[in-house]
Design a protein around this nucleic acid. Structure first.
Length: 445
DNA sequence: TCTGGGGTCCTAGGACCC
DNA sequence: TCTGGGGTCCTAGGACCC
């Protein structure tokens, strides 16, 4: 039986194909071939894998409804009730009161993700992981390997399903097209856009379908009568550059289907940060500083675990009206030691906030790493980091003592968890936070 | 009880140097 | 002591992604 896929036709997912993908004659593929593999409702799927009693039922991974929490991932059974990612948990609870809720088990998600990424790297070394549940693959036919990209995609779907979760795959000549294709049919979809079919595939889609166009860009475009990617492709590039800067050119190229961004592994970490949203706004200096110390300790610990030391320290404050202010400072030397930089955070936050003003969220970030890779000597003496003697914790100003203290508490946290040990000034404001999940790949490596 | 937490990248203005 | 321009670093804010 001879069969060709039209550009937008969707072959059945691997598990549904009655005679198996290998028996279909695929139209030949010329030129670049990019896959985007997207794990379906990943966190919720892992929960259902690990809890057989939850299969077939609505499952929601997310923060508490009564603490400003939002949905991280909803199973497809929960999505049938209108629940989706980033929805306030209070809304989700109203839409689907019978859902099974969990705050998530992130070590487990990382474990399953790593196994799947292993499968992808087994298929090709050209893998770019973009999050815990997504990766681009370059599977362009070469002189040595003529295997058809669609066959590779179908085999990946089968191999992933053997681990107990499913994925959707988009196949195209560019990252833009592969990504949009993967979104067209979920779960377990396999959507193929053949070379030459890009413009017809993209033209009818709303501009928001394209990665990089969010609410603000959509609104700007709508105000100029541009609603679809076809209209975006027809728009003058000069006008787009005036509107969006150099990103306007990128948007135009992508809408034309001509994006040639390479698939490249990018595992250099550029920043490490931690934020807390409080169920009850903070108003006193004591509470704000206690929370900052707790957040700073988490950042410090993650820096040490990754072997990173940074020079750029930042603080973010979100107020009750959701407005945000931030400050950043260059430190004299890179550090991974919160005992050295927490006192600096206290001074920085005073530039943004005065006692009495309700604080909804606090965040601490570190960036400015030497090269994004591990550093050998990561604990610098505190007096070389703190800009002034006031910033040194008197009790721990001795560098050797501090190093020992940090190492000891890290060891206890390794054994008993993050909340096992806290320094004195971290103790207030406990259990006043939302708790949620990151999908950033840097946290899962 | 409206809207989390972890990231990346871009922009625009100012300081500073050559 | 009249003047511009380029490069780089730094800072605050914002858009966007998963």
């Amino acid at each position: 039986m001879e069969r060709e896929f039209t550009p937008q036709e969707k072959p059945e997912a691997a598990g549904d194909a009655p005679q198996g993908m290998g028996t279909l004659a695929l139209a030949p593929w010329e030129g670049p071939a990019i896959l985007l593999v997207d794990l379906d409702a990943f966190f919720a799927s892992v929960e259902q894998l690990d809890h057989p009693g939850w299969r077939g039922k609505p499952v929601i991974v997310g923060g508490d409804a009564d603490r400003h929490g939002v949905v991280s991932t909803a199973s497809y059974e929960a999505r049938a009730f209108g629940v989706h990612s980033a929805m306030p948990s209070s809304t989700a609870r109203r839409l689907c009161p019978q859902a099974i809720w969990t705050r998530g088990h992130f070590d487990r998600y990382r474990e399953v993700s790593n196994a799947i990424m292993g499968i992808l790297r087994d298929e090709t070394p050209h893998v770019q992981q973009v999050s815990i549940d997504e990766a681009f693959l370059d599977v362009s036919p070469t002189a040595v390997n003529r295997e058809h990209p669609v066959d590779i995609a179908a085999r990946i779907q089968r191999r992933v399903e053997e681990l107990g979760v499913t994925c959707s795959v988009g196949v195209g000549t560019s990252k833009t097209v592969a990504k949009i294709a993967s979104d067209m049919d979920k779960p377990r979809g396999l959507t193929v856009v053949y070379p030459g079919g890009e413009r017809d595939f993209l033209a009818p889609l709303p501009v928001r379908a394209m990665s990089g166009i969010g609410a603000a860009a959509e609104e700007k475009l709508r105000a100029r009568g541009i609603r679809t990617l076809g209209q975006l492709a027809d728009a003058g590039e000069e006008a787009l550059v005036r509107l969006f800067g150099k990103n306007g050119r990128t948007m135009h190229v992508r809408a034309l289907g001509g994006d040639d961004a390479p698939v490249e592994a990018d595992d250099e970490v550029k920043s490490v940060s931690n934020e807390m949203t409080f169920a009850v706004d903070l108003t006193t200096r004591e509470d704000v500083e206690a929370a900052l110390a707790t957040i700073a300790a988490k950042v410090g610990r993650r820096l040490r675990r990754k072997g990173l030391a940074g020079r750029t320290l930042s603080v973010r404050v979100r107020f009750a009206d959701r407005s945000v202010r931030s400050v950043q400072r260059q430190l004299p030397r890179p550090t991974d030691d919160e005992l050295a930089y927490t006192p600096i955070l206290y001074r920085m936050v005073r530039e943004l906030w005065h006692p009495g003003t309700p604080v909804r969220l606090l965040g601490v970030g570190m960036s400015g790493f030497a090269d994004g890779r591990a550093v050998q000597e990561s604990l610098f003496p505190v007096e070389e980091v703190a800009p002034s003697p006031d910033d040194v914790e008197p009790a721990v100003a001795d560098a050797g003592k501090r190093r020992g203290l940090i190492a000891a508490t890290d060891a206890v946290k390794d054994r008993f968890g993050e909340t096992a040990v806290r320094f004195g000034r971290e103790l207030r404001g406990e259990d006043n936070t939302t708790g949620s999940a990151s999908k950033n790949p840097a946290d899962y490596k």
